[in-house]
């Protein structure tokens, strides 16, 4: 039986207690502050927001690496709390930003890619090498690098190794945390092409976390915009890029610099500072930076409003 939602999170909170000093009481930091999200099978969800908005924390929760303070994560309609860590690992796999830090420098390529097989205790160890080679072929790595070490490879090749490791057990969901931002432009396009191909070939679902909105626009089918631990807008990519609703999404998208010399740089009017998440602004947390701030924005927190194709959280769109 297949369900439409391969990944679902319900009202997730992740709170850290930050100590401000030896004799001061600890203060809570809501890294993720009540987020709900459904990821349908085969979809590519882009997760965007500034650093500190909680997108990386959310990725860790989706990978089962972090137990949320409150809320529920479901993979394939099964609550993560009931799943074994090996079960989660078979279904959800990560790809990280920095291919220099994501591969153990002491292990050979073959050993890195086969690690998931060994951990899962996959049947027929004699076929492992063949499976590794098949996966290497799939991600465009030549067989001769099987015994090489990461230090002997270029950034693009390393990222392919990381992708092969994530895919060898054929997971359903791949969480890509800035998969191309540490790579050169010419290599970035190769990795993006590979991700697009692999998705079609293996029927993968991606959650792509990126600050590069051009990349998100290129690959994602739906985009979620996060701000200070909240999801302020979720919409289909086309809707978001053509008719974004939340003022923050507008500012964020206006900051994308396309290579067009006839356009200058427009001011996003976001002000210089990202608010301190330990001491978030009252009401709508975006109000100090908002260009369309209204009188009641600093006192009343907005609630999610259904827009048909997604959700927006802003007083502007309240009936």
């Amino acid at each position: 039986m297949t369900t439409p939602n391969v990944l679902e999170i319900r009202d997730i909170y992740q709170t850290y207690q930050i100590s401000k000093g030896l004799f001061q009481p600890k203060k809570p930091l809501h890294a993720v502050n009540g987020v709900s999200l459904k990821v349908a099978r085969g979809e590519v969800l882009g997760l965007v927001g500034e650093s500190g908005c909680g997108k990386s924390t959310l990725a860790k929760i989706l990978l089962g690496l972090l137990k949320p303070t409150q809320g529920e994560v479901l993979i394939d309609d099964k609550p993560v709390a009931d799943l074994d860590r090996l079960d989660i690992a078979r279904m959800v796999q990560p790809i990280f930003q920095d291919p220099y830090s994501s591969l153990n420098p002491r292990k050979s390529v073959g050993s890195i890619i086969s690690l998931p097989l060994r951990v899962q205790n996959a049947p027929n160890p004699e076929t492992w090498q063949k499976r590794v080679e098949e996966t290497m072929d799939l991600v465009g790595l030549p067989k001769r690098v099987y015994n090489n070490y990461p230090s002997q490879m270029s950034g693009g090749q390393r990222q392919r190794v990381a992708i092969a490791r994530a895919l060898i057990n054929r997971p359903q969901v791949v969480i890509c945390d800035e998969p191309t931002s540490a790579l050169d432009v010419s290599v970035q396009s190769q990795i993006l092409n590979l991700l697009v191909d692999l998705r079609q070939e293996l029927g993968l679902t991606y959650v792509i976390i990126s600050h590069n909105l051009a990349v998100v626009e290129h690959i994602a089918t739906r985009v979620a915009v996060m701000y200070l631990g909240r999801m302020v807008e979720v919409a289909d990519t086309d809707d978001l890029f053509e008719a974004r609703q939340h003022p923050y999404s507008q500012a964020l998208l206006n900051s994308v610099l396309t290579p067009d010399p006839s356009l200058g740089i427009s001011d996003s009017h976001l002000g210089a500072t990202y608010p301190n998440p330990i001491d978030p602004p009252s009401g709508c947390t975006f109000h100090p930076r908002c260009a369309k701030k209204m009188a009641h924005c600093d006192s009343e927190a907005p609630t999610p409003i259904d827009t048909g194709s997604g959700v927006v959280e802003c007083h502007l769109y309240k009936d």
Binding site: V185, S186, Q190, H218
Partner: peptide, 25 residues
């Protein structure tokens, strides 16, 4: 030319379309 072909441009590059690539190192 290759470099410019490598970057996706919102509104111009079709979604999921093949981006240009510069092979080799």
């Amino acid at each position: 030319q290759g470099l410019l072909d490598c970057i996706p441009i919102p509104g111009k590059t079709a979604r999921g379309a093949k981006l240009g690539a510069i092979p080799g190192i």
